[in-house]
Structures are given as C-alpha cells and as structure tokens.
C-alpha cells in the first residue's frame, strides 16, 4: 500500500510538470501580446512598452520566462501584471469567497441526491422514478445562465429581496441578525444553481448504483431471512452502494474553481471564477496561469485522495 502511494504520488508530480509546460505554452504562444492590451492609449509610449516588456521579462527567451514564472510562483513573489499585487494574496481572498458557495452547493447536492436516487431505484418504473429522471435531464440540458435569470426574476418578484453581489450596499452597519439574513439571501440562488447540475448527475448515479445492489444475491438472502424491507435496503443495500461515493469526495475538489465562472459572473460574486474571467479579459498571464495551475493541483490531489480512500474503505483493492 505504501509503495502504491509513493508511486502514484510521483506519477502525479510528473503529470503536473507536463501540465505546467502545456498551460504555459497555451497562454504565452497565443497570438497578440499582453503589452498591446491598450494600443490606443496615448500615454502608452514606445519607451513605456520597452520598460513594460523588461519589467515582466517579456523580452527574454521562452524557457527563461518559464523558469522565472514558476520560481516566482513557488517563492511567493509572483505579481499580477494588472495592479502589481501579489497573485497568491489576491487568489486567497477570492477563494475564501468562492468557498462559501462551494460548501453550501456541495452540501445541497449531496443531501438531496441520495434520497432522490435511492427512492427512484427502490420504486423503479414508478411515476416518481420517471419524473425525477426527466427532471434530471432537464437540469443537465438547460443553459445555466438562462435558468439563473428565470430564478432571479421569480425570487425578485416574489420576495422582493436583492440577490446580486455578496451583500446589499449599505448593510454594513445594520444589526448582526439582519446582516446574516442578507448574506443568506444572497447565497441562496448562486449555491442552488451550482448544486443543480451536480444533483442531476449524482442522483442518476446513486440510482444506478442502488439498482445494481438490490439485484445481488445477498439482498435476496436477507429478504428470505425475513428481515424488514427497510433493514435490507438501508442497512445491507445502502452500505454497499455507498462504496464508490466515498471516493467521490476527492473528485469534488476541483469544482471549487471549475464550474463557477458563469454563475459568479451573473451574480457579481467576487469569487475565483470571476477573477479568472477578469484576468483573461486583461491578459493578466500570471493570474491565468496560477489559477490554471492550482486547479490542476486540485484535480490531481482529488484523484490521489480518492485512490487512498478507495483503499481504506474497500479491503479488496488493497495492494
């Protein structure tokens, strides 16, 4: 088990190295120069251009730039090209904002998918099963921002509360309880929207997994023994059906950065996805690359954790 862990860890490191090269090349080789972002600005003289290129090492060969970029990243000296602030500090602040949405969204996803998936599986072919299947497909198929606007219109009309941004302007001096209420109202819609796609996929997966389990021999044996249906399904069945989901805890990690660009843009939520989008617009290469790098690290860490968890929960896999 130890040898597997060490081997898999080093494999992940090698993968990360190649990812760092590819993402660097994708961004740096794209046509157009970051120094040309504002060519019509009269204050931006050719001398400034030279200074700018020198300041950000853009005049050096590509491999030197690669080395300098990652050296700065790991020593924490990396500065944004846009406002000269340290990139890691900026990202830390934004990640804290996104973390709220991510946690609430994940909580909603996992607490809704299991009941829906399990009852759909136990009542296979019933109205509930077909209805939840259909709704799951609708949720996967609807363009996210279109659905967001429908929900915003409904909530704003029905409850007359502001939902855009992280808090209402001018609420900073209100009572604690009002501020909490305000915060919750602002979080409801974006976190539900982030959860919906996950609910659709996860509940389908739970259903499939549960269906496979309840046709196993040991379930029939438990039934034949005369146990009540609840004990059979929830004690014998669910425990075994849960196995693959333990590993999915690792796989949700990358969702922290991945799925939030559009939703954070709609709700003007100052999170990491929106920061990535702003960085792309401003051609702020250090920020783009760092976010890309962090999300690759999250993906790799997620698969690593899920491999380890799998070995912990399923003794058959232990090597």
């Amino acid at each position: 088990m130890l040898s597997f862990t060490v081997r898999s860890f080093f494999q992940k490191l090698v993968t990360l190295f190649f990812i760092s090269i590819i993402s660097f090349l994708v961004v740096y080789l794209a046509p157009g120069k970051p120094s040309q972002i504002d060519p019509l600005n009269p204050k931006f003289t050719p001398e400034d251009l030279v200074r700018y290129r020198k300041e950000f090492n853009l005049d050096k060969p590509l491999y030197v730039q690669y080395y300098l970029y990652y050296r700065n990243l790991f020593s924490g000296q990396l500065k944004s090209w846009k406002d000269n602030q340290p990139v890691m500090d900026k990202i830390k602040e934004r990640v804290m904002n996104s973390l709220w949405l991510f946690l609430v969204g994940t909580l909603i996803t996992w607490s809704l998918s299991f009941p829906v998936g399990i009852s759909a599986a136990l009542r296979r072919g019933s109205f509930f099963d077909r209805f939840s299947t259909f709704i799951a497909y609708v949720l996967i198929s609807i363009p996210g921002f279109f659905f967001a606007y429908i929900l915003i219109e409904l909530v704003v009309r029905a409850f007359n509360v502001p939902v855009i941004g992280m808090y209402t302007f001018g609420m900073a001096k209100a009572d604690f309880i009002y501020r909490v209420m305000d915060r919750i109202w602002h979080m409801v819609l974006p976190s539900i929207l982030m959860a919906l796609g996950g609910i659709a996929l996860l509940s389908r997966y739970v259903r499939a997994q549960m269906l496979e389990i309840i046709h196993q021999d040991y379930i029939r044996t438990a039934m034949a023994k005369g146990l009540s249906a609840d004990v059979v399904y929830y004690k014998h069945g669910l425990r075994n059906a849960l196995l693959p989901f333990v590993t999915m805890f690792g796989l949700i990690l990358p969702g922290l950065i991945g799925g939030s660009v559009i939703i954070e843009s709609i709700f003007a939520w100052p999170g990491i996805g929106r920061m990535a989008f702003e960085a792309i617009l401003a051609r702020d290469y250090p920020v783009i690359l760092t976010i890309n790098f962090i999300s690759a690290v999250l993906v790799l860490a997620g698969t690593f954790i899920s491999d380890l968890l799998y070995m912990v929960v399923d003794p058959r896999i232990r090597l």
């Binding site: 994708v26 660009v261 890309n292 999300s295 690759a296 993906v299």
Partner: peptide
Amino acid sequence: MRFVDIMLCFPSFFLILTIVALLP
C-alpha cells in the same frame, strides 16, 4: 494515456474560455 490524463486535468470550460478569448 498519460497525455489523456494531462488533458483531463485542465478545467475544460476555463481552458476553452482562455483559448477562445486569446484567439481572434
């Protein structure tokens, strides 16, 4: 297959957005 693994590590929508935004 290692190349596939590497490609799967990129957040797909973010990668598409980056390339599309940087290209004309």
